[in-house]
Write a protein that binds this DNA or RNA. Structure first.
Length: 489
RNA sequence: CGGGGUAUAGCGUAGUCCGGUUAUCGCGCGUCGUUUGGGACGACGAGGUCGCAGGUUCGAAUCCUGCUACCCCGACCA
């Protein structure tokens, strides 16, 4: 077995990096803080994209594309938005290079831009500048647009997939005629995210509102889904913002309403990013490598022949090609690995590292018995199965793995979610990792103080939780409900 | 931006304190042969401006100075 991977117990973040590198998902690039997403990692993103894209389209959204550059003046229009992002913006100041006397390439100082361009950290401003032209009447609403894009946030410290200076995401930007519709949209998307993440990534999440300290700069309310990683730290998996009329006012987007009066448009915006790949790794993977839920695995089944001579090889290849065709007919993503340059054992280790859900191996003995050997990645269980029943067995096992991974993660989440009423206990539980459900007096000052003492923040304020009266864990002031605290990524 | 560390072949490294022939080892890579039911083995081979620029010295990967890049720890963050 492989010793390329640091164990989780030894060093969790090293383990995480080892998985990313050895499973061939991504690597650091020549640009500080930016990663190269490798074909296998990108294939996972493509699976996510196509599933989510379908969900957006089924709910009436359409895709469009807006520029990567944002004039500085647009950016400055919404004050709190500027505050939120100013410290991490890349700025384009020139548009030309030239050779100096020594033949070095330098910036041509004469080619200075009249107005600097910001590389988008998010697109609200450029989009609302555009929506101003598109929206005149309630008949133009709702406007439900999504874009798949890259954004840049100049991060101090980066980690593959979890925080890089450039990352890929989708950002939805919608416009509505009234507040209720905008809030409904914001919550509808949150529900889509929860559904998508739980049912496809097999990651259980808690959903709710962000505290004012944690919410998106420029939003009235930020809704979120938060997941718990194997090391007990929380990871924000997606956010959906109710923007009120903040951006409509900043960009003067008014429409004639049904009463014939001019009013500002109501808005939402929402996004999930390639960070979800990091969530996937830290939720399901083990010390042997990546573990992928079948619904997102670029290959759900891999076929490996075991042979001793050319004749056996040919027989196995032709038998396995038939199996591949059969499985593809069931919409199963299949990879056949007939390479003669690597031994079976090598391939087994390789696909384990890459988290392929099911491995099918066939040798001469199987050929004689009309069987194959099946190993599933989640529990490494090995079975011999008759080829005749392959059409039933494979889909069943894939479905079982999908739900098995979810329930394993869900058990972990439950075991690591604690109701706490005493501050010493709070500190201890936070220190150990996990979600801590505790009362909070609702003030940013208290949240700050708790963060200072414990490094934990409020990850999520449940929306429909039973209103259980209590006392703030820190200040003992009255509180109406418990909120989720955790240390986070 | 503060505090610490590292830089030697594609990757991981020994050598640096205490300067001295041709810079060590493993993985990977190439050729050939034997192999193939859990990362095979043997033989041969290719691959290096020792991060960059100066300096000290008969002689520098090794000592000195400056620079650069990256990593870790903090503050900030999807």
């Amino acid at each position: 077995m492989s010793n390329k991977i640091t164990s989780r117990s030894e060093n969790f973040s090293k383990w995480y990096n080892d998985i990313i590198i050895n499973a061939d998902l991504a690597e650091n690039s020549g640009v500080r803080g930016c990663m190269v997403i490798k074909p296998y990692g990108f294939a996972i993103w493509e699976e996510m994209k196509s599933l989510l894209d379908q969900m957006f389209k089924e709910t009436g959204h359409v895709n469009a594309y807006f520029p990567i550059f944002i004039p500085k003046s647009f950016f400055s229009k919404e004050a709190s938005h500027v505050d939120g992002f100013a410290k991490e913006c890349a700025v384009v100041t020139h548009y030309r290079l030239k050779n100096d006397i020594d033949g070095n390439i330098i910036v041509d100082e004469e080619a200075k831009l009249e107005e600097e361009l910001i590389v988008r950290p998010t697109s609200e401003t450029i989009i609302w500048d555009t929506y101003k032209k598109w929206i005149k009447s309630y008949r133009d609403l709702p406007l439900l647009i999504n874009q798949w894009a890259n954004v840049v946030r100049w991060e101090m410290r980066t980690r593959l997939f979890l925080r890089t200076s450039e990352f890929l995401w989708q950002e939805g930007h919608t416009a509505h005629e009234n507040k209720d519709q905008a809030i409904e949209e914001t919550r509808k998307i949150l529900a889509i995210y929860k559904d998508f993440i739980e049912n496809n990534l097999a990651i259980p999440v808690v959903d709710g509102l962000k505290s004012s300290r944690e919410k998106f700069a420029g939003a009235i309310d930020t809704y979120c889904v938060e997941a718990l990683m194997q090391d007990g730290k929380a990871l924000q998996a997606g956010t959906s913002h109710f923007l009120g009329q903040n951006f409509a006012k900043a960009f003067d987007v008014k429409f004639a309403n049904r009463d014939g009066k001019l009013d500002y448009v109501w808005a939402s915006s929402w996004g999930v990013s390639t960070r979800l790949i990091g969530a996937l790794v830290m939720t399901h993977s083990d010390d042997r490598g990546l573990v992928l839920p079948p619904k997102l695995a670029p290959f759900q089944v891999v076929l490996v022949p075991i042979y001793h001579n050319e004749r056996e090889y040919q027989e196995l290849v032709s038998a396995m090609k038939k199996i591949a065709i059969q499985l593809r007919g069931l919409n199963i993503r299949v990879k056949t690995d007939f390479r003669d340059t690597h031994k079976p054992g090598w391939k087994f280790a390789e696909y384990e590292m890459k988290g392929v859900p099911i491995r099918i191996a066939m040798g001469p003995r199987d050929l004689a018995n009309k069987t194959f050997e099946l190993v599933r990645r989640d529990n490494l269980e090995k079975r011999t199965i008759e080829i005749d029943v392959i059409q039933d067995v494979i889909p069943n096992i894939l479905a079982e793995m999908q739900s098995n991974l979810f329930s394993k993660a869900n058990d972990f989440k439950k075991k690591n979610t604690f109701k706490v009423d005493d501050f010493d206990d709070f500190k201890a539980k936070i220190d150990n990792g996990g979600f801590v459900l505790a009362h909070w007096d609702g003030t940013p000052e208290t949240e700050d103080e708790i963060k200072k003492i414990t490094k934990a923040t409020i990850r999520c304020i449940p929306i429909d939780s039973n209103h259980e009266k209590g006392e703030c864990i820190l200040t003992k002031k009255p509180s109406l409900k418990r909120v989720f605290f955790a240390k986070s990524y």
